[in-house]
Amino acid sequence: MKPISANTLVIAGVEFTSRLFLGTGKFSSGEMMRESLEASGTQLVTVALGRVRTGGEPDDILGHLDGARYRLLPNTSGTRTAKEAILAAELAREALGTNWLKLEIHPDPKYLMPDPIETLLATEQLVRRGFVVLPYVHADPILCKRLEEAGAAAVMPLGAPIGSNLGLESRAFLEIIIAQSGVPVVVDAGLGAPSHAAAALEMGADAVLVNTAIAAAEDPVAMAEAFRLGVEAGRTARLAGLAHMPSGESIRASATSPLTSFLGEPVP
């Protein structure tokens, strides 16, 4: 029989075989971006609405994206409130012809920390307007459940501050989010190395989103390939079942006095 738990990533009814999502910013050229996306094996790429020419002129980013190959995930980067994000979302839907949306609202221009209150508000309204919403948030387990209830198609908690390359600083909270989420969990932001991506997938994350670590690498194409391998290694390890968890803690207990001897011998 098939495994009791499914092994495909499905977001809003769309299946993904690649669990690596890529951002399209910070590449040195459209050509470099195109090659990197290809090497990564990704099927979902984010596009900042602010970067896209919406008037129909040739575009640096869209001009290098094969629309048949990649599903676009417009993001609302740059918006500071729910109201601004909703306007940006409507514009993105019209310009890019997709109702998928990575919702990110950061009123703070220094650290670009997501605003949880505005994000929940915007999610509720965008779902009602027919968007497939993937909100970018802190690794806050309750917020993730509230977003799920509001109809988010997935949640995208951060591993570390965006662009920091620090890795899974929020590990303890990501573990809780993964354990209790009813929608896919995509670890977004802060992943600096393929080993971070592998660790996220080992932990049970459904996918990761990477941008800076690839785009700003010495050789983005080779790094995109390395992330592809890291994600595949992490997912395979997750399915294989780790012998010892990274924390060193497992449910294997040291035996004290016997607890089951009163039951006698098992009856064959």
């Binding site: 738990s5 573990e175 924390s247 497992s250 016997p258």
Partner: peptide
């Protein structure tokens, strides 16, 4: 071998199975 609270439904099936009987203690 799973860490606390990290068991999935396949793990539960294994722990409920006849194969788990020798591991009861």
């Amino acid at each position: 071998g799973r860490s606390r609270g990290n068991l999935d439904m396949e793990d539960l099936a294994a722990l409920l199975s006849p194969a788990a009987a020798p591991h009861l203690e």
